[in-house]
Amino acid sequence: MARILISLIAGALFGGGLIVSDMVNPARVLAFLDIFGDWDPTLAFVMGGAIVPSALAYAFSKKLSRPLIEERFFVPANRTIDLKLVTGALIFGAGWGLVGYCPGPAIAGLVFGDWQPFVFVASMLAGMWLYRMSSAFLDSKRSFA
């Protein structure tokens, strides 16, 4: 129960941060990505502001033997840079730059009136599912080969 509550609070603070910093507004994100136009630095400030507490928490977590309400830390240990990572990130960025939505702002934006974030989120889930299907298909081919 405590873990669910922490998740809810963390999600709410995250959503609050997205609204305060105007990251729920795709036009704001696109203005940051528009280096040949009227460049808007907001996203850089948001990233900078977010990294400070997050980095401090990470440094602090190394001094803890375990999290406060969980048995262990689930921090990714993978340090291998492979083609899958880079290709995936490049594909994500292309979609991000097309309309200015990434997953968090699109979901937080669902409650602000319009139908556009619903179309985006539904398509995003379809994209996630397509990746899962395609990687399962490739894995099965590999195991037969």
Binding site: A89, I91, A94, S123, M124, A126, G127, M128
Partner: peptide, 11 residues
Amino acid sequence: AGLLVGFGTRM
């Protein structure tokens, strides 16, 4: 954009 973001973030 949604398809690219969904697929790319999982990959």
